[in-house]
């Protein structure tokens, strides 16, 4: 089974909070591959929002994403893109309550 892995830094100004995490999880779930995200010694399921939030990844945190499955390469490319490019209206989201 193909496997791909890359390590990048989070660019979102407020870190991987609920909204970017939600975008990441939604994207991950569209792929057949297993997705894991590792920060330090913690490894979580990239398709679980609860898991991803547990990482408490701030801006600049190093995350390593591993994809494992038939569409591993495409999945990795897409997910790395989400971590390294700001959300379309990331600036606005920082001045808004999520509640």
């Amino acid at each position: 089974m193909p496997m791909a892995q890359r390590t990048v830094s989070v660019v979102h100004s407020e870190g991987l909070h609920a909204r970017p995490a939600a975008v990441f999880v939604e994207a991950a779930r569209r792929f057949a591959s297993r997705v894991t995200v590792k920060k330090g010694r913690t490894i979580v399921d990239g398709k679980s929002i609860m898991g991803l939030l547990t990482l408490a990844a701030r801006k600049g945190s190093r995350l390593s994403v591993t994809t494992n499955g038939p569409d591993a390469t495409a999945a990795l490319e897409r997910l790395i893109g989400l971590l390294t490019r700001p959300l379309p209206d990331a600036d606005k989201s920082s001045t808004r309550s999520l509640r």
């Binding site: 909204r19 975008v23 939604e26 979580v44 398709k47 679980s48 609860m50 898991g51 606005k92 989201s93």
Partner: peptide, 19 residues
């Protein structure tokens, strides 16, 4: 729409398979 998007995270928690 973007106010409404905030609830996407809530929806994801509902079908979080790890949970």
């Amino acid at each position: 729409q973007d106010h409404a998007d905030i609830f996407n995270a809530h929806l994801l928690v509902l079908d979080d398979h790890a949970l």
